[in-house]
Design a protein around this nucleic acid. Structure first.
Lengths: 167, 167
DNA sequence: CGGCATCCTTAGGGATACTG
DNA sequence: CAGTATCCCTAAGGATGCCG
């Protein structure tokens, strides 16, 4: 087995396990990249298809300087990419588009949206549907055997560090 | 049909659609409740089974005052609840436990963790497994017909406001 | 249109010290 | 153990104005 510890979720924590700390936690690392509310909302807006500076600012409800900062940071982090484009007959414009890394953040936003729908927004204002079959789409936690899970059904396994005392 | 607009994800946005704005967006509402990195990490720690003040502070890596603020806010928002408990023979202690509302945030944290694993943490340090069958667990976006989806497979439907011009 | 510079206010968060 | 009080610094974000 390739793990060196197993913790029952909601159980006691072995004090020698420091994976909980900042340096091992992917949640913390993710939040270092997408740290602010405005960053999340700019990403939401990119998923909605917004590409232009002024549209980001207006639809997210941010001032121009903050919009500029968030867009630049997200481009620097690799979640968005900026490109020039020109519609025939008009002048060059800038467009911000999701990279693969940015697009991969979608489940996070859907999970936030569904939680907000249930607990903070009286059922929510939008719904996601599968384009091909029209059925509503949801975020789910499932195991590779296909079981649908809740947090209590999980255990957490800590993998050993790679590349260090290779035995 | 109970929707009043359909937008293709990554397509153009109808300018009259203001659901994108703050007042209709459940993502924004969710981020108003759990706004900061430290709030997310405190919730992570609660999922890991931490219940005591000092453990939150140490394992999340927060100063005492910030830990106190986050815990108090999360209790006020209804994501955690504080209870006194007493182990036989020792004095009364305080414990913070997830409420249903707090536990329901789990998919958000898992989605963040998986994104961080893939893009910021070289594959990640922990893995989640289904306790009953041992299979690895993941977050998935699926429609009610059982299709596994990516962001491009979705369309977004805006539901009309309830309780207002009821026709 | 797509920004940047400047200035300001508030929020996030650490350090230290103290209390029940 | 479980916090509070105080102080200080930085980050988040708005308002205004300018610029290519």
């Amino acid at each position: 087995m390739s793990t060196d510890a197993i913790v029952q979720m909601t159980g006691k924590l072995d004090p020698r396990e420091r994976w909980s700390a900042v340096d091992r936690c992917s949640i913390g690392k993710a939040l270092d990249v997408v740290r602010t509310r405005s960053a999340f909302l700019v990403m939401r807006e990119a998923f909605y298809g917004t590409t232009r500076f002024d549209d980001f600012a207006e639809r997210v409800g941010l001032s121009d300087p903050v919009t500029a900062s968030r867009l630049k940071e997200l481009v620097d982090e690799g979640l968005l990419e900026r490109e020039d484009y020109r519609e025939p007959g008009s002048r060059t414009r800038k467009a911000y588009r999701l990279t693969d890394q940015g697009a991969d953040l979608f489940p996070v936003l859907v999970a936030l949206m569904e939680w907000g729908d249930r607990w903070e927004n009286d059922g929510g204002g939008v719904e996601l549907r599968h384009r091909d079959c029209g059925a509503r789409a949801h975020i789910e936690l499932r195991c590779e055997q296909g079981h649908t899970l809740e947090s209590g059904d999980l255990e957490l396994a800590v993998r050993p560090r790679r590349k260090r005392t290779a035995a």
